[in-house]
Design a protein around this nucleic acid. Structure first.
Length: 312
DNA sequence: AACGCTATCAACCGCTATCCT
DNA sequence: AAGGATAGCGGTTGATAGCGT
């Protein structure tokens, strides 16, 4: 039984996205807003499944995504939140609105896991520590465990509080955020693409602009991108920059995010948490959030901790 | 210069939750 | 209420860049 994967369809493209596909997707979302992903491939002409389109948008194209190195504060927050929430990357990402869950997950798997593993021997000398960095031991009494848990949580709480309040570059969950536009995201993607294209990119990454795709953009009038202008040749550098400039002119209108309520919702930590407040897990997160930032909720209200306590 | 190994990260896959009819 | 469709999440994979030999 079970449905066949949506991406098994013949003619559905997989693999890395080209700048043209990005443009097509962003253009469509600029006009229609995110959502109704099923309609996106057919309406845009993209040979991608709806899932792939949604993923591309949420992870790379939507406004406000910060790329590059994680700051110390972000790192600290991820470590502490992972200890508290486990591998709930989406929940963790809601506290780091400029980062995607995929990014955080990758960062955890490639950097932090190792980092914590290195530190672990020293920690395990004092007591046993789980691989995820959450200190607990089956050999200690419940009272001791609760005490240690409280210490861990206090530490986490303090670190999180520090990270949120002391670092101006890291937005606090209740604050208002300034997001880069998706134009900037695409321009950045284009630039990195330009950087890597001339010699190393395989056919997958090379520009393949069909005439239909041209007319798609030429319909916009100002944003004409001729095939001559974007070929992966020696001229590609300047011409692809032209493309990114075309982006700027095409998408350069103000307050893209404010024009669409989903952006403010999806990028706001409390919005993402409260969207489904009736859900028990989300209620716990809301309580956790209250507790983290206000110290309102009593620790014993958390079933996640109750479950750990049941081990004894 | 060539090769192999490792690290990184974008994208995919499979599953579950939720929505809709 | 039931079943199908869709969205979202977390785990995993694969391509590729970078580094060492």
């Amino acid at each position: 039984m079970g449905r066949p994967p949506c991406c098994d369809k013949v003619g559905v493209k997989k693999g890395p996205w080209t700048p043209e596909e990005d443009i097509m997707l962003v253009t469509y979302i600029q006009e229609h807003g995110p959502g109704n992903w099923r309609a996106v491939p057919s309406n845009t002409g993209l040979l991608r499944c709806s899932k792939s389109c949604r993923l591309r948008w949420t992870n790379y194209l939507r406004p406000g995504i910060k790329r590059g190195n994680f700051t110390d504060h972000e790192e600290k927050m991820i470590i502490q939140l992972q200890a508290l929430l486990g591998n709930k990357w989406a929940a963790i990402a809601s506290y780091l609105p400029e980062r995607t869950d995929n990014d955080i997950k990758n960062f955890w798997n490639t950097h932090l896991k190792k980092k914590l593993k290195k530190l672990q021997p020293a920690v395990s000398d004092t007591n046993s520590t789980r691989n995820d960095g959450f200190s607990m031991s089956h050999s200690i009494s419940k009272g001791q465990w609760e005490k240690r848990l409280q210490t861990d949580i206090n530490t986490a709480k303090q670190a999180l509080h520090d990270a949120l309040s002391l670092d101006g570059s890291t937005p606090a969950p209740q604050g208002s955020f300034t997001y880069a536009s998706s134009t900037e995201n695409i321009a950045r993607l284009l630039k990195s693409w330009v950087k890597t294209t001339p010699t190393t990119h395989k056919s997958e990454r090379q520009l393949k602009i069909s005439s239909t795709q041209h007319s798609f953009y030429n319909d916009e009038g100002d944003c004409s991108t001729s095939s001559d202008a974007i070929t992966p040749s020696a001229e590609s550098k300047s011409s692809s920059v032209d493309l990114s400039e075309a982006f700027e002119s095409l998408f350069g209108f103000e307050s893209f995010e404010s024009s669409n309520s989903e952006f403010s919702q999806s990028t706001s930590p409390e919005a993402s948490l409260f969207q489904g407040e009736s859900k028990p897990a989300v209620r716990e997160l809301s309580m956790l959030e209250n507790w983290l930032f206000d110290g309102k909720d009593d620790l014993t209200n958390f079933s996640i901790f109750d479950e750990n306590a049941k081990l004894f």
